[in-house]
């Protein structure tokens, strides 16, 4: 059986959970096996997972699972794997998934691939691909243990509705007492968090100063994008630190990345070069970012960005 840990926050699933279930469904099909999802804590919408291919949803509802503790979650997932006899376990490659994958590997004595970028190849060997060297190469791993563990990179597969339904069943697993106390959870309201954003508008030192960000925010608001920035911009406190993308900041892979007034240093590219489509706006024709771009506009950003925003507004009005 393929078991997917479907992450939820306050009972709600994120896109990553649907991606993981869709991925697990296809793995199960390739293996001629069943696909079940596991939900921990509150999850009023658990049956939704049926629509992405889960034939059954198991839920461990202990109140202690309301807060994330990698030790307690590991015990819950490992307990479910053993009870259900799962041979492939899939997590999201999120802050939660990354804290669990390694623990589960040790606990279940299972080989793991962190951040898979494609479906496994299943034959004599079980092979899984992932990006390595900050996206500059792809490595194919062979997992040789009876239980196989995968965390799925965000935006690597699109969630696909199957129209199926799933029954939700309670599961009992003995859990250890938590040794941590979560004092506070602060969320940034409003926009989609960067690691999950499908559309990102990012700006660099070419903006000259924090007072000029209005044109960036207007563009982002118009397409419903999340804003990001280069490191020097965050370091100078022009923008909040959580917007910093790149090797030392957040690594993202949105469908669309619009880079404005960013030169395209290799450390910046390391965090964004897995974006599906890259648009670069820069006045320097020699800017290295153009080499990594799909579409380039060589012009003064202060002219071009408002014009792009207007063009999108016009397009939206015509298509509504």
């Amino acid at each position: 059986m393929v078991l997917i840990f479907a992450e939820s926050t306050n009972g709600k699933f994120k896109k990553a959970a649907f991606e993981a279930v869709s991925y697990g469904y296809r793995v199960a099909q390739a293996m001629g096996s069943e696909c079940a999802a596991l939900v921990l804590g509150d999850a009023a919408e658990a049956s939704q997972l049926g629509n992405y291919g889960a034939s059954k949803v198991y839920r461990i509802g202990d109140a202690s699972l309301r807060h994330f503790d990698s030790q307690v979650y590991t015990a819950a997932i490992a307990g479910a794997v053993e009870k259900l006899g799962a041979s492939v376990v899939i997590l999201s490659h999120s802050s939660t998934g990354k804290s669990l994958l390694g623990r589960l590997a040790v606990k279940l004595n299972a080989g793991s691939v962190a951040g898979a970028s494609a479906l496994p190849t299943i034959g004599d060997e079980f092979k899984v691909r992932k990006n390595v060297f900050s996206g500059k190469a792809v490595a194919e791993y062979v997992i040789s243990s009876p239980i196989k563990l995968i965390s799925l990179m965000g935006n690597a597969v699109a969630p696909e509705a199957t129209g199926g339904t799933a029954e939700v069943a309670a599961l009992e697993v003995a859990l250890p007492a938590s040794r941590i106390t979560v004092k506070e959870v602060k969320t940034i309201e409003g926009t989609v968090p960067l690691p999950e954003a499908e559309l990102v508008v990012s700006a660099g030192r070419g903006l000259k100063g924090p007072e000029n960000w209005q044109i960036i925010e207007d563009l982002a608001d118009t397409i419903g994008a999340t804003t990001a920035c280069s490191r020097p911009v965050a370091d100078s406190d022009w923008r909040p630190h959580h917007e910093h993308v790149g090797q030392t900041g957040v690594a993202i892979r949105p469908n669309l990345y619009i880079a404005i007034g960013i030169s395209g240093a290799i450390q910046h590219l390391a965090g964004v070069n897995r974006s599906k489509v890259i648009v670069v706006i820069n006045k320097d024709p020699e800017a290295p970012f153009f080499k990594a771009a799909d579409y380039g506009i060589c012009a003064d950003l202060f002219d071009v960005v408002p014009r792009l925003t207007d063009a999108i507004k016009k397009f939206k009005a015509a298509n509504n």
């Binding site: 004595n109 080989g111 793991s112 500059k136 190469a137 791993y141 062979v142 153009f290 799909d294």
Partner: peptide, 19 residues
Amino acid sequence: LSTVSTYELPAEKSSVKML
């Protein structure tokens, strides 16, 4: 339990379309 069997370089990005 999990080892790299092969590596691959990603396909070259087709050249940028300047607009």
